[in-house]
Design a protein around this nucleic acid. Structure first.
Lengths: 205, 205
DNA sequence: GGGTCCGGAATGAATGTTCATTCAGGTTGC
DNA sequence: GCAACCTGAATGAACATTCATTCCGGACCC
């Protein structure tokens, strides 16, 4: 069944709805946004929205999955996980940066806190799968001695990801504006956080 | 007017309400939580709640101010901003850690995204004032050459804060469990992110 | 017994969801 | 080729529910 009839994907309503929902959710959160504005923004009747999504919760899950999947694709498509650690790190950072810059609403939406209350299984799975490439990068770096072996991989990811998000969140909230060179400096700083510093063993205290 | 009569602060309802509200908001967000559950959790009638807070929004602002103020106090009370950079950094980190451990709900609440929609002026002021001690620490460290001079202070704060939050957020979401020694390793990693690395100038790329 | 405080049922506005109706396009019968 | 008919997507007004806020009867002090 290649393309059902001639018409069909003329405008693809579910996609339009998901896109519209993403923007409104990113702005006001799930509970902060009524359904009608979403429909209006998508150029669709409210009833139509319910033809494609069982209820509001199913819609957020669709938005979440779609967005997370796009982030994952953007992060991993065609990436060579065997590049040297630092190059791989830079590559991931650049891709993250690119995504955050091109999809501010997506990024903002993904970083909302209350997702856990309503995510279904499929959404969770995508959520987790995003961590894979970052974990690979860390482990590989630790094996070849470039990354701090004492830093647990999951903590390294949380630190790296948290720092990255922190910068873009601060920018989104108006605390700062970041130029491209600032981003490079920040990237290097993140790298310093996770890399191996052989000389200084006893820096604690 | 020292203490109005004998009774009065027998149990202090506003405080109980704020405390209850904090926990429920931290769990479901402002728009995700109805008022009655807050009242119930505070052991108070809904009407009573409205005796002390003009409306729901005023309540969130009170919660926000109270929480942020407590964090700020916990972070700055009796701290000597002239300690050497690394010691000051450790001190701040320890205090942050302590606060996050003792008040998980507070921390979770403060990191919610949609605050900006309803914060009033007073709340904003407290919000900003929290950045002061961290900014001091960065600037002082840069002046005495210990911290990376190329990293803008506001970005350094965002990175440091983001990394810190990232770890606790990951733990709150069940992605990891952190022991005390892991926290120390993470602290050192954060320090590496912002400190000056004189040897390696051209690490970019 | 007058004043203050409290509680939670009552109220009405806002919001998620449904469903009777419309309508565009395709199909059938001539 | 042209009606009459059929189909199912689309719609938005109507409905049911949820929720913020009010308000009045009662409790508790002086």
């Amino acid at each position: 069944m290649p393309a059902p009839q001639h018409l069909r994907n003329e405008d693809n309503k579910p996609d339009r709805i998901i896109k519209a929902a993403l923007e409104v959710f990113a702005e006001h959160g799930l509970h902060g946004t009524p359904v009608p504005p979403i429909a209006r923004k998508a150029g669709v009747g409210v009833g139509t929205l319910y033809r494609y999504f069982e209820n509001k919760e199913a819609l957020v899950n669709a938005v979440f999955r779609d967005t997370k999947q796009r982030l994952k694709d953007h992060l991993t498509d065609g990436v060579d996980l065997n590049e040297p650690s630092r190059a791989l790190f830079n590559e991931l950072w650049d891709r993250l940066t690119g995504f955050a810059r091109q999809n501010p609403a997506a990024f903002r939406f993904l970083e909302m806190q209350d997702h856990h209350a309503y995510l279904d299984n499929d959404s969770w799975q995508i959520e987790r799968s995003l961590l894979v490439p970052m974990g690979m990068m860390i482990l590989q770096g630790q094996q070849n001695g470039l990354l701090n072996p004492q830093l647990r991989a999951d903590i390294a990811i949380a630190l790296f990801w948290g720092g990255f998000v922190g910068i873009f969140k601060a920018e989104a909230q108006g605390y700062l504006t970041i130029g491209d060179s600032d981003l490079l400096t920040a990237r290097d700083a993140c790298w310093q956080a996770i890399r191996h510093h052989p000389k200084s063993e006893g820096i604690t205290q």
